[in-house]
Every structure is written in C-alpha cells, then in structure tokens.
Design a protein around this nucleic acid. Structure first.
Length: 844
RNA sequence: GGGGCGAUGGCGGAAUUGGUAGACGCGUUGGUCUUAGGAACCAAUAUGGCAACAUGUGAAGGUUCGAGUCCUUUUCGCCCUACCA
C-alpha cells in the first residue's frame, strides 16, 4: 500500500496556499471578524519548540474559526529591535540590520514549513523605518498629552564599558562582559506616565473574563493598590527640616511609633552627603547582596540622625530618625513610621538598635496586658494602649477612624497608594527606535516636527565603541530647527514600546499617514484571542494595555481601552536531560539506545544518565531543532505531537517516542483514507448504517467542544478513537456510503490539527469548499442508558435499559439479573436513590 | 515573608452540576506475520488474589445514599513576587 509522503504533500499544499493567497484577509463588514494573534517572535535566526507550540495552538484556532465562516485575521511579524542584534553585530562585525534581516528570512521559511495559516501580506518588522516612524509619532502624541516626561533615574553603570546595563546583564554585581563592579548612576531619562492609569488598569482587569485568573492576579499585585494615609511628622533637630511625610496603611498603630526611617535617597540625605559615617553606611547598604532575595532576607541596618520626630497624636512622644536600608525611595514618600510591635521589619530594626516596642494591638483572645515580645504581631485584634483609639477593632474600623481623626486635626489625609511605577523607556543602545527629541544648550527638549519624521537610525556605523554608539555620531546628532542648533536625543526606546502597539499595526500594515487606520481598527480590534507565554504576564501585557489607554486619552477619534479580549498562556516544552559519565550535558541527538540503555553515539563504554525533564535550554543541551523534526516527520506530525500529550496551558514533554507515534498515526490515517477511497469506487445501493451517523455526530460534538475549551490534547484522543471506530466499521460487511459521507465531515474537523494531510484527502474526495460541520443535538440522545447499580453505595453492576425508564422498571430488570439479584434477595431494602438514566443506589 | 497553582497506574494525561476512576497515548508483556526488525497487526496492562472479592486519586478527618470532585487540617512539589510601610 502506498505510504503517505508528507514531504511531497506538505510542500505541495504550502505552495498552493502561498500562490492562491489562501490566508490573506480583507476587511469585510458583512462577515464576522476574528482576530487571532500569537506573540510575535524575536528574530534570533531559528525557531524553537516553544514557537512551534505557540504558533500551532494559534493556528488550530485560526483555522477552526475560518472554517466556521469568520473573517480571520492571523498575522505575523518580528520584534526585531533589541540587544542580541547589537551583540551579534559586535562579535561578527556585521551590521545589526543585515543580521536581523537575514534571521527574519530564515525564520520565516521555517515558520512556513509548519503550514501556518498566516496572512504574510501583513508581515511587519519593528526595526523597519516603516514601522518605527509611526512609533515616533505616537511618542510625540503622548509627549503633547504630557504622558511622557523626563526625570533623573538610576541605572546600572558599567564603568569599564562605559555603558548602561540591563538588570539581567548584571551578574553578582558585576558587568556581564567587562566583569567590572556595577555602579549606580543617575541619568536623565524618558518615562511613560503609566502610573496615571493605575486605577484604570486595575478596573480594566475586572472586564477581562477571558483572561487567566493567574495573569490578572499577577497584574493586580504588580499595580499594588493599598489604602492608607499620609502623615506629616513634625521634626526637631539641628537641620532646616521641619516636616517629613510618610505613607502608612496602619495609622491606627501610631501610638506604637518608636522611630522614623528614611530611604538613603531621601532628600534629607543631601545634608549628610559629606558625612564620612553616612558615606560608609551607604556603602554598607549597597554591599548587602545583589539579588533581590538577599536584600529581602538581609540584615536591617540604620544610620541615626540627630533629628527627632514627634508623634502627632502624642506630642510628648519624640522618637529618633534613622536612614535605613530597607526603606525604598520609590514607594510612598521614601519614609516610613516605625511601629516595631506590629511590623516584622520594624521589629527587627528595633531589636537591633534597642528601640522601644510598644504593643498597641492585642489579638481577639488576649487581654489588655498582652505584650509583643518574640515577634511582631501584624494580625487583627483590638487597639490597646492608645488613649482615645482604645477598643477599636483593628484593622478595619481602627484605620478608618484614625484617618478621620488625623484629617480633623489636619495632621494627615486619606491616601491611596500604588506600587506601579512609571515606565522608563530610555535605553542607551543603538539598535532601537530613536526618540524623536532634540535639546538646546540649556537641555530643553524639543519634539522633532512631523515633517522631519522619521528620525532615522544611522546605518553602517561603528559599534565597537564605549557607551552608546549613537552618542559618537556627531554629524547625525546635530540638527537645526527654526534656526537653532540642537542636539538629538541619543537614547532609543525600550523594545517593549514596539510590542505595545504592533497588534494595531497588523490591522493596517501599509497605512502611511498614521500607525493605523481608524476604519481598520474599528473592524478588527480588539484581538479576540491572544496567545503566548506566561513570562509576559506582567510587563508586555500591562504596557500594551497602558498604550491603548494612553492613545485613547483625550482623543476624539480613538477610544479603545483593552487590546486583548481573550488571553491564553501556553506551557513550556520540556525534554529529558542527559549527562555522560563525566557529567557533561549531552544532546539527545548524540545518544543511541541499545537494549533499553542509552549510550553516547558510537561509544558503548559511555552510558548516559537520564535526568529529569526540564524546559528546553541550550545550556542543558536538551533542545530539539524543529527544522530537523519537520524534515524527518513532517509538519503535521510535529503539530499533532506538540498538541497531543498535555493540555496546552501546561508544560509538555517532548519525546522521540511521542513524535514517532504521531508520525505513525498519520500513516495509519492515510491507509484508512485509501481504504475509504476504494469503497467510494464501489456501487452502493442500500445503506442502513445509522451507527456511523450517530458516531460522527458525537465526534463532531466532542471536537467542537474541545476546540472551544482549548482542550486540544483531548482532540487528539478523539481522533485516535475515531480511527479505531472507522477501521472497525470498514471491516463490516455492509455498504458504506454513509461512512464516506461522514468521513468527509471528520476530515474537515481534523484540518486545524493536520491541515496538509486533510487538504490532500479532501481534494481526493473532490471537496473544495469546506465548512465546519454542524452536529445535531437530537441525534446525541441515546436510545438506551447504562445504569450503574450500587448496593450500599458500592458499584455492583451495570444494566442497559431503555432510556427514561422509571425506577420500578429498573428494579424489575435488576431482579432479573442474577449477578445483581443475589445482593438484594431476602434483604429488606431501606432506601433507594434513583437518578434517571444514570444510577440506582439500593440501601439494605 | 506574600500570592497563586498543583498532587490520579511505570509515564503523559482523561473523568458534565458530587454519580461506572484510569478515556486516549507512551512504555511494558504475550502473540501473529516476516530473512530480519526499533516495521505492521492482534491481545493484555491500577494494585493484591487462581478466583469470588478486597484495596485504590499525597496524608488525616468531615459532609453525603454516594467524594478525584465539596469543607477542615496537614505534607510535599512547582510557579510568580519580593523589605511596598
């Protein structure tokens, strides 16, 4: 029998799809739209299994919706600015542009081999002038709306390379390339005012019913809303400081106040900048470790000032003011009031510096003599030792009551604080979107006029310089505007800016005047289903949501708040890890299995130890190259396998056995297909096979439901069951015309999973215009029901009976069954629980 | 420290509102066919037991006629987050 030659057939269909522009989409207001988007890739040069999984999941959905008659937008593009291009360029003496473009063309051809239903006419690349010129316009639009501003901010500075490092480039406090100790340096940088929309971004989450709760929770925590109050503390001392502002969520514990702590960056630190002890203290602070975890667990240390803070509720009570390493400058006001009894950090600090610990909240079940001794008590209870606050229920009532009192006395006021910080978008890099701003001698910023946009990135420049290569482009930097000589901004935009609006560009990829056309966006947006990795749960998704808010802000023509109606986050692709006898990682490709044991290829003395399955990574050498898989098993087999073993939202384990079994399954489907084609040629007069109709109907119901639920792994199970069912039916002696008719429907439903295969089969059956087959609810109703028979709650048997039979008839049938009858014979039945068509439980 | 998710055969995973636990696949075992097979096909496969039956969804309780599913307690694992005042 002829084997299925995926090589020829897959190429053939990919060519047809390309030539006939099968997946190219046009705006059509008469059709319901469906916008299916997967997170676009960074063009590293090679696709990896994560891409295969991501894009297969998206493709299944896009193809399913298209078959259902939706006008489907399913585009693809490239997140093509960013550091890797710059690093590669330095290493290989290549222009980042050339490197990036060649990577794109390689990856594009690999993606095409997967048979994705992508509208390549809409391809975009964020590093193209065509794309970033619109981004510059958006930047200036936000600039005009005052949603973009400049401020000084700390960066990781590598003093050897004279460059700014991203957090991930700082390893153990040292620059990743130079090894130099990283310094904190203040630079003037551009910020997007994302915090202005904190409340809106929080509210918006409520509406996103088709987002995973997990992601919503993560964003909620990131935005970090907290309710409390700001308090003005009067200060006494030898410095020109009379007040310090603090934010607190627990003003009700004010009588437990025993110190006030400031961030080392607090403005008061200016008075200490030449104090040698303070300088030493600052150094100490920066030494406490580099990882965030180390800082969190690390010792709490402080520097005592000569200042005293006065408790506003009890002016006789004066406490010392410290600088402390655990106070963050960018939360609240960079100053906290310390209440050791009811905050663990304050408690640790108080213990260290021997400060008073005043208990002001007692747990419900303790009396007023309760004292905090071993650790802080942050829990609920009743206020004590606090004069007029005594007896209040903490924290719910006590916080509100205290705020009222403080407001009356004009000492403090209610405040809602957000953790969300403004988004710093300046990057001291070459390979990014230039910021369309120039400065005069006094460092005033001027937007580049519209007519001079885009600000083009200079090409063929020297990258092997210290600092930002753009900085040394003197000719490019100098411009004249309205007769004034200005200097261009040399920072470029964070690449997250590029990905914050690309979904809009896909709606109007060729539009010249603006980033998108209103008409297109009105039709296509929002994205109905967005699919990607959970690693983008916070930043990318929050930035995109912000970008829509920012564009809609004070805008008559555009008002769209949420870009992604549905979100799906897929799991990672894992593989077993291997090590040889010298504990070196070994790639699966370098292993052969002999009699169940694994050896290094060609070396039987070197047995391989099999480690746990972990997400594929180059460092562990447990990656599998999708291109090799496609060329040896075919795209359909790869798609089938990547979907089959686990639910899409969970991690999946890649295995040789798995992919090979998917390959074999396609071969089996092919021989089934050939057998059915043979049957087509025969003369069929009579056909009474209702069973096939019923089966197919149920199959369609299951597939449709599983597609809707993203239970793609169950679809593969359905397909296996279908195969063995049809194979059995085929061997039965009766006529098979019904089988053929129903087989057509089955083929159509498998198209989203294995499109090349089904396209070929459908063509052989002369089906050209496939539509998603509907199933018939009525046909799902079974004539018989299997009823579980339980005796005292234990399953004792099963009886097949006519549907909707009542309890009495079922009992009669049970007594006819010897196996069941024996349990109830001569027994007094106390009770019967009867669930029609399902179960009967007899209690004796 | 805070938050979230999860725990089902040798493995990945199925199991409507609480109602046949283990679908489907992998692996394993036996068989058929073959010069041979790491191909194809057939069969078996939660555990114990010859069987009848008993036991089984991390552990311990509880609700219920009935719990993988609901409640309480607990153990372990993973992920996110991190001195957020």
């Amino acid at each position: 029998m002829e084997r299925y030659n995926f090589n020829i057939i897959e190429k053939k269909w990919q060519k047809i799809w390309e030539e006939e522009k099968t997946f190219s989409t046009k705006l059509d207001k008469n059709k319901k739209k469906f916008y299916c988007l997967e997170m676009f890739p960074y063009p590293s040069g090679k696709i990896h299994m994560g891409h295969v999984r991501n894009y297969t999941i998206g493709d299944v959905l896009a193809r399913y919706k298209a078959l259902q008659g939706y006008n489907v937008l399913h585009p693809m593009g490239w997140d093509s600015f960013g550091m890797p291009a710059e690093n590669a360029a330095r290493q290989n003496k290549l222009d980042p542009k050339t490197w990036t473009e060649s990577n794109i063309s390689k990856m594009k051809s690999q993606l095409k081999k997967l048979g994705l239903s992508i509208d390549w006419d809409r391809e975009i690349s964020t590093c193209s002038e065509e794309y970033y010129k619109h981004q510059q316009k958006f930047f200036l639009e936000l600039f005009k709306k005052k949603l973009v501003y400049r401020k000084e901010n700390y960066v990781n500075w590598d003093p050897v390379d004279e460059t700014v490092l991203a957090n991930e480039q700082v390893i153990d406090g040292k620059g990743w390339r130079s090894g130099a100790t990283v310094e904190r340096k203040k630079l003037s940088q551009w910020f997007f005012n994302i915090s202005k929309f904190s409340q809106e971004l929080l509210n918006g989450l409520e509406e996103l019913d088709n987002w995973p709760n997990k992601v919503k929770t993560m964003q909620k925590n990131w935005i970090g809303k907290s309710f409390g109050c700001e308090i003005d503390f009067k200060i006494e001392g030898n410095l020109p400081v009379d007040r310090i502002k603090c934010f607190t969520t627990r003003p009700d514990t004010l009588f437990g106040f025993s110190f006030l702590a400031l961030s080392i960056d607090h403005e008061i630190s200016q008075f200490y900048k030449s104090n040698p002890d303070f300088i030493k203290f600052k150094e100490e602070c920066s030494k406490t470790g580099t990882t965030e975890e180390a800082i969190a667990v690390g010792d709490k240390i402080g520097f005592k000032t000569n200042l005293m803070a006065i408790n506003p509720l009890n002016p006789k009570d004066k406490v010392p003011v410290y600088f402390a390493n655990f106070v963050l400058m960018d939360y609240g006001f960079g100053a906290v009031f310390g209440c050791p009894a009811h905050d663990q950090r304050d408690f640790d600090f108080a213990k260290k510096y021997d400060l008073e610990i005043k208990t002001v909240v007692r747990p419900e079940n303790e009396n007023d003599n309760y004292k905090v001794t071993e650790e802080a008590y942050p829990g609920p209870g009743v206020i004590i030792n606090s004069e007029f606050l005594d007896g209040l229920e903490a924290p719910n009532n006590s916080v509100i009551e205290t705020i009222k009192i403080l407001e009356d006395k004009k000492i403090g006021k209610k405040k809602i604080n957000f953790r969300l910080k403004d988004w710093g978008v300046s990057r001291q890099r070459y390979w990014g979107c230039p910021i369309p701003i120039a400065y005069d001698e006094d460092n005033n910023a001027y937007p580049i006029p519209d007519s001079d946009l885009p600000v083009k990135l200079p090409e063929n420049i020297k990258l092997d310089v210290k600092g930002n290569p753009l900085d040394s482009q003197n000719k490019w930097k100098k411009i004249t505007l309205n007769g004034k000589t200005l200097t261009r901004e040399t920072d470029t935009l964070d690449t997250f800016v590029c990905s914050s609006w690309y979904y809009l560009r896909f709606c109007s990829p060729g539009h010249q005047d603006y980033g998108f056309k209103k008409e297109d966006v009105d039709y296509w947006m929002p994205v109905d289903q967005y699919i990607g990795g959970v690693e983008h749960a916070i930043l990318h998704l929050l930035y995109s949501r912000f970008f829509m808010q920012a564009l809609s802000y004070e805008n008559q023509n555009f008002n769209l708040k949420e870009p992604f109606d549905g979100l799906f986050t897929q799991g990672m692709v894992c593989h077993e890890t291997y090590k040889d006898h010298e504990n070196n990682w070994v790639s699966p490709e370098d292993i052969e299995t002999i009699q169940g044991k694994k050896y290094l290829k060609g070396d039987r003395s070197n047995e391989i130890k099999v480690g746990p399955s972990e997400s594929m990574s180059k460092s562990k050498k447990n990656t599998i190259d999708p291109e090799n898989i496609i060329s040896s098993y075919g795209a359909d087999a790869a798609r089938l396998f990547i979907l089959s073993d686990s639910p899409p939202e969970k991690d999946v384990q890649w295995s040789e056995e798995g992919i090979s079994s998917s390959f074999k399954f396609i071969q089996k489907l092919w021989s089934l297909n050939l057998k059915i084609l043979e049957e087509c040629k025969k003369d069929h007069l009579k056909d009474t096979d209702n069973e096939i109709k019923k089966y197919t109907n149920k199959f369609l119901r299951n597939i449709t439901k599983n597609l809707e639920d993203f239970s793609y792994n169950k679809i593969i199970a359905n397909m296996h069951e279908m195969y063995s069912f049809l194979n059995k039916q085929l061997n039965k002696p009766y006529k098979k015309i019904t089988l053929i008719e129903n087989y057509e429907k089955i083929l159509i439903t498998m198209t989203p999973i294995i499109p090349h295969f089904t396209s070929e089969c459908l063509k052989n059956l002369n089906i050209t215009n496939a539509n998603w087959p509907e199933y018939d609810e009525k046909m799902l109703i079974e004539e018989y029901a299997n009823i579980v028979v339980q005796i005292n709650g234990k399953k004792r048997g099963l009886i097949k009976t006519k549907k909707d039979n009542n309890e009495k008839i079922v009992m009669e049938e049970i007594s006819k069954e010897k196996n069941l009858e024996k349990y109830i014979k001569d027994q007094k039945i106390k009770k019967k629980i009867f669930i029609q068509n399902r179960l009967i439980n007899i209690i004796i």
